[in-house]
Computed example of a mutant assay.
Amino acid sequence: MLAFAQTDIGMVRKTNEDSFIFSPPHLFVVADGMGGHVAGEIASNLGASTIQEYIKNCRELSDWEYNLKEAIIQANTIIYQMSQAKSECLGMGTTVTAVYADGSDIYWGHVGDSRLYLIRENKLLQITNDHSLVGELVQSGSITPEEALVHPHRNILTRAVGTSDAIAVDSGRFLQQPADRLLLCTDGLTNMVSEEDILSICLQYENPQKVVNKLVEQAGQAGGYDNITAIIVEYRD
Rank of each mutant, 00 (worst) to 15 (best):
N67E: 15
L68C: 07
L68R: 04
K69C: 05
K69Q: 08
E70P: 00
A71Q: 08
A71M: 10
A71L: 10
A71Y: 03
A71T: 07
I73C: 09
I73A: 14
Q74E: 15
Q74L: 15
Q74P: 00
A75W: 05
A75S: 14
N76I: 01
T77V: 09
I78Y: 12
I78K: 12
I79G: 05
I79P: 01
Y80I: 05
Y80P: 00
Q81M: 14
M82A: 15
M82Q: 15
Q84V: 11
A85V: 10
K86N: 15
S87A: 15
E88M: 13
E88Y: 03
C89V: 04
C89R: 10
C89T: 07
C89A: 14
L90P: 00
L90G: 05
L90I: 12
G91V: 14
G91T: 13
G91L: 12
M92E: 11
M92N: 11
M92W: 06
G93H: 04
G93P: 00
G93N: 01
T94S: 11
T94G: 00
V96K: 05
V96L: 15
V96F: 02
V96E: 07
T97P: 10
T97C: 14
T97L: 11
A98W: 09
V99T: 07
Y100I: 12
G103L: 12
S104G: 03
S104V: 10
D105P: 10
D105R: 14
I106A: 07
Y107V: 11
Y107M: 12
W108N: 05
G109M: 12
G109W: 09
G109P: 06
G109L: 13
H110S: 07
H110K: 02
V111C: 02
V111K: 01
G112R: 05
D113Y: 04
D113W: 01
S114E: 05
R115F: 02
R115P: 12
R115K: 08
L116P: 13
L116K: 10
Y117H: 08
Y117Q: 08
L118M: 12
L118K: 13
I119H: 03
I119C: 15
E121F: 02
E121I: 11
K123R: 10
L124H: 06
L125H: 13
Q126A: 09
I127R: 08
I127P: 03
I127M: 12
T128G: 03
T128N: 04
N129K: 07
N129Q: 14
D130L: 02
D130Y: 01
D130A: 06
D130V: 05
H131C: 09
H131N: 15
H131I: 11
S132Q: 03
L133W: 13
E136D: 05
L137P: 04
V138I: 11
Q139I: 02
Q139N: 12
S140N: 08
S140M: 03
G141N: 09
G141C: 08
G141K: 12
G141M: 07
G141D: 05
S142F: 01
S142R: 05
I143A: 12
I143P: 00
T144I: 04
T144K: 13
T144L: 11
P145A: 03
E146I: 09
E146A: 10
E146H: 08
E146N: 06
E147R: 13
E147A: 12
A148P: 00
A148S: 09
L149E: 01
L149C: 04
L149T: 04
V150E: 01
V150T: 13
